[in-house]
Amino acid sequence: MSPMSAADAPVAPSAHGQPVAPRFQVHAYSLALRLVSALLQVLMTADILCASALIVVGTFTGAMNPRPPALAGWLALIALALFGLTRLIRWLTAATFSVEPSQFVLERRGDRFELPVTSVESARVWRLPLPGAGVSLRMKSGRGFQYALQVVDPLPVLEAMGTEANHPLTAFAHARATVSRRRWYHLVLKFVLFPLVPAVIMFQLNQRITYGGPFAQYQMYGMGPYMQSFFTYWTYFTALLVLFASIWRVLAELVAFAGAWISPRRARGVRRFVEVASAVLYYGGFCSLVAWKFLQ
């Protein structure tokens, strides 16, 4: 068993001088609930991409006062509802998994499952990481444990269990969890604030060309139409950047997966490279495309 870092699963001495069993925050899914959660995640992603494509294709179609298609708004509401359902499932499946010397303990919503170490044949990372990375337990009876455990980083769990943890999928999930730690404010910067840059530029160009000044539409028609026009440009560039980012994300994950499969030991280095490259291509590449469009 390879050594486990303190950041992954801290082990502190108890009041009696004995080490505390590693304890992990997980989500315990039954097979049916995992399938539902994975399906919701796929539908939500497809919904967002469809809404973005509709906005990009159908917003500026020669109308005097362009607006995003109404269908895109309904799809956005559906995506929001799907997101709420996925959050509800995560809340319902929240659990803790402890690795004790003689048993594994899963505690979820008032239930406690104690699995003797001798009754567990193996633990392996999910081959299909949906709704996220996770670990499944196989009992010596030949049956799988009734709950599969979703965990952000399966490597510390497998190491704590004393299970072989050198599978490429484990390396891939570990690199993703430790290198690309996304927070909510990263998404805000990427899909809320950054689209303001091209939106403000194009909106002000439109104001000057169409109405004769930066605030002419406001002076002629009021605040409502003025803000509606700005919202249209911001929505358009947000949708365009969602599609733009999706292309680079798919390519980045394919490169990171191939790197982890070819050389699991270098998975973190490959992941670090693709994350930096994706950021450069997203921010720098999009700005370059906008500049090239202006210079045509």
Rank of each mutant, 00 (worst) to 15 (best):
F194S: 05
Y211C: 03
I262E: 05
E107T: 13
F104Y: 14
T59S: 10
G17R: 08
M223D: 09
I209T: 14
M4F: 04
Y282D: 02
L31R: 13
Y282M: 08
V197F: 11
Q207R: 12
T163S: 13
A260D: 03
F215L: 15
A252F: 02
M161T: 06
V20S: 15
E107H: 09
V280I: 15
A245P: 01
A256Y: 02
K190C: 09
S52Q: 03
M64G: 10
W234Q: 11
V120R: 03
M1R: 14
E159K: 15
V152L: 12
A256H: 06
G284C: 09
R268L: 09
L43A: 14
R265H: 10
V36C: 11
Q150M: 13
P214F: 12
R208H: 11
D8A: 15
A173K: 00
T96M: 06
V270I: 15
D153Y: 03
M220Y: 08
R23Y: 03
G58V: 09
A171W: 00
A199I: 05
D8Q: 15
A279F: 10
F172D: 00
P154G: 05
T163I: 15
L106Y: 01
V56R: 01
S278R: 04
L71G: 06
F113T: 06
R67H: 09
V274L: 05
A53Y: 04
L39Q: 06
P129M: 08
F294T: 07
L106R: 02
A94P: 00
A7I: 10
Q296V: 07
W184D: 05
W184E: 05
P225F: 07
M220F: 11
A277C: 07
K190W: 06
R90H: 11
F97E: 01
S288K: 07
V135C: 04
T86A: 11
I247R: 03
M227G: 02
M227D: 01
R109G: 12
A38V: 06
S229N: 13
V117P: 00
A38I: 05
T86Q: 14
Q146R: 15
V280P: 02
A245W: 07
F113K: 04
R124I: 05
L77Q: 08
M44W: 03
S98Q: 14
Q25V: 14
S52L: 02
L295Y: 14
P225H: 10
I55N: 00
Y185I: 14
T93N: 11
V105C: 06
E164M: 11
A171P: 00
F83W: 14
Q146N: 08
G134Y: 03
A123G: 09
R265Y: 05
V135I: 12
P168D: 13
L85R: 03
A260F: 01
Y283I: 10
P68V: 06
V152R: 11
A46I: 05
G142E: 06
T235M: 14
Y185R: 08
T210V: 15
R176N: 15
A6N: 12
A79M: 08
F273K: 05
L39T: 15
L39I: 09
V151K: 02
I55R: 00
M202C: 09
L289E: 06
A279Y: 07
T96L: 06
